[in-house]
Write a protein that binds this DNA or RNA. Structure first.
Lengths: 354, 354
DNA sequence: ATGAAAGCGCTAACAC
DNA sequence: GTGTTAGCGCTTTCAT
């Protein structure tokens, strides 16, 4: 027998649909209206304690969970953060993925967001970002490995899409960023080596043009100046990011008129090559030649000797990035802002003379 | 002046809302109904060419993109695949994250899905899966590193949630899985070593109880049997997954009555330790002691000497997993099914006598 | 404090 | 082929 009109009763109770229970089901069981249930969930102080209790119980009993899509459609937000996962390059130890992404996911979760991974297709990198924004699949982005004039940052900026970068722009602050002071990391390594008595300290960096690499290189120059050491151009070399490149660089350095007794590398990958070349040449790493790397990748403690390396506080970076981004998404924007975090030198046997 | 009533005209054109254009806007511009626009997008053959053209042009002109949330709410699917990202353990090289996750994202994208990353909170691992399913945030899951009687697989199975695993269950097929034949990988390594003339070949595996580890160990026994070699219990040891553990294991092996001339390791992490211990003892790896690892992690080619290792076809695994999962999600289920892929031995200097 | 009504943007039935 | 009519499950005015 049909109801006396009036749609009071939900014509499609959950059980009948083979789906989970809805707000309606909860409301019916708790004998309140839908909105009251919604209020219990989203504005608890608007509801009387007794009512709240009854609703909570109904929720419990039915195993109700709000339908995220429905909520998001109404709210006009996906509560999703996009992160582009880079293709892994063979022969290069990805310094970021493992720790950083996990930290990102954890931080996002604590702020009520999820992380959506994506990777560009033939349509191109920017198109991938546009697609995600256009379909409102994500609310904002986290960019890592940003470089000077990063095309992604420029595009997102132009479109007014919220994002925070891991890495800072060169222009005066235009968007919010978090970065690790790579220069300070190299500085710390050089000071550490000088404290061990080293006078001829070399730096093997990346070719000019990468923001990250250039700033680390600057730290090298700064440290030498602070220590009153000569900045010998012959001891400041640039190679691609590969172990073989590092090995060749070391051999080249050793062939110089006044070879270095210590080497700071811009990456662990390069340091691996340096270690190998040194060992091959019969140099005792640690005592005869000190070597430091950068990023403290998982292999650093596994090498022989264990590699001294500059560790980035990736967990803190991820945490701050998510905090800033969720702030922006919550509308509590404030001006774009930057934050520079300090890295930490992890000293191991490769820079110990004993 | 107000419209003559009748809601024919959308009272909220896109420009007025500061949001992107909607189906309505496109329909208005193309002078067709909403439904026709929807058909152009979802059932092109239902629409006349001429109409299609006009609609396409309107879409173009407005820069329209379907609102994913709205579509998903209607279709009752999120087109999202959940993947639990494991916390990175220090000192262990994660063999999976980098290549596998990227491949997963790429494969999912090609099938019209996105990958959502998550990690459990205090509520517990299974609770995290339940939450995602309950809120209908994801349509299904990919599980990696599954073990015997994996609690996640059991829980999802019980709830009827679609999922595919990387790794196979021990019980007769209950769900769809893809796996790499680890035993065959170890077998290949042993055969390769035997071909080099080695007779005393050792295996350093993980403690019993891990599906992956046990199967790799079985491959060792199988290979010895095939080669007619003795399965000397003293040459078949089990340690935790760490470089130090590998180093200790090798030292222990070398102290035996009849030490091995070759060692196959269940992981690259262990192999790193073996390499280190061998070098420390003055053993020439390659000629005096051959060493093989497993997983061909990014460090394998960076070690000295370069490490022979068994490489898993992670890209193919991801591809197959996503294909199966999207099939299931599309309703074209079929019976649960398994697929075993062959790994490939990458031979490098650590097992070469010259 | 609670309830009724409206509608987010889309697709699925069903008419025409 | 195309348009009309209903919602998907939720939140948000606005009454009460």
């Amino acid at each position: 027998m049909a109801e006396q009109r009036s749609g009071r009763e939900d014509p499609h109770p959950a059980e009948a649909r083979g789906e989970g229970p809805t707000l309606n089901d909860v409301a019916r069981v708790a004998r309140v209206s839908r909105q009251t249930v919604s209020n219990v969930l989203n504005a608890p102080d608007k509801v009387r304690t007794e009512t709240t209790r009854r609703v909570q119980q109904a929720i419990q009993q039915l195993g109700y969970r709000p339908h995220r899509l429905a909520r998001n459609l109404k709210t006009r937000s996906s509560r999703m953060i996009g992160y582009e996962i880079a293709r892994s390059r063979p022969g290069v130890i990805n310094p970021v993925l493992d720790r950083f992404v996990h930290a990102l996911v954890e931080a996002a979760r604590d702020d009520g967001y999820h992380v959506l991974l994506f990777t560009p297709d033939e349509a191109g990198q920017i198109a991938a970002y546009d697609e995600l924004v256009g379909t409102r699949t994500v609310d904002g982005f986290v960019l890592s490995e940003v470089n000077y004039a990063d095309p992604r940052a420029i595009a997102l900026q132009a479109r007014g899409v919220p994002f925070v970068t891991f890495g800072r722009p060169d222009v005066p602050v235009a968007h919010t960023w978090i970065d690790v002071d790579g220069g300070a990391g190299v500085e710390a390594a050089v000071h550490h080596l000088a404290a061990q008595g080293h006078q001829r300290i070399a730096f093997i960096g990346w070719p000019e043009g990468s923001a990250t690499g250039d700033r680390r290189a600057e730290g090298f120059g700064r440290a030498l100046a602070e220590l009153g050491l000569d900045h010998d151009a012959a001891l400041d070399v640039r190679v691609e990011d590969g172990a073989d490149d590092g090995a060749h660089a070391l051999i080249h350095l050793l062939h110089g008129a006044e070879p270095p007794t210590a080497v700071v590398c811009v990456s662990d990958t390069i340091a691996v090559g340096v270690l190998r070349a040194a060992t091959t040449r019969g140099l005792a790493v640690g005592s005869e030649l000190a070597v430091a790397g950068f990023d403290d990748t998982p292999v650093a403690p596994l090498l022989t000797p264990q590699l001294t390396s500059v560790r980035q506080p990736l967990e803190a970076v991820a945490q701050r990035i998510v905090n800033h981004l969720t702030d922006i998404l919550a509308g509590g924007a404030g001006k774009p802002d930057g934050e520079l975090l300090a890295p930490q030198l992890i000293v191991r046997a490769s820079t110990h003379p004993y």
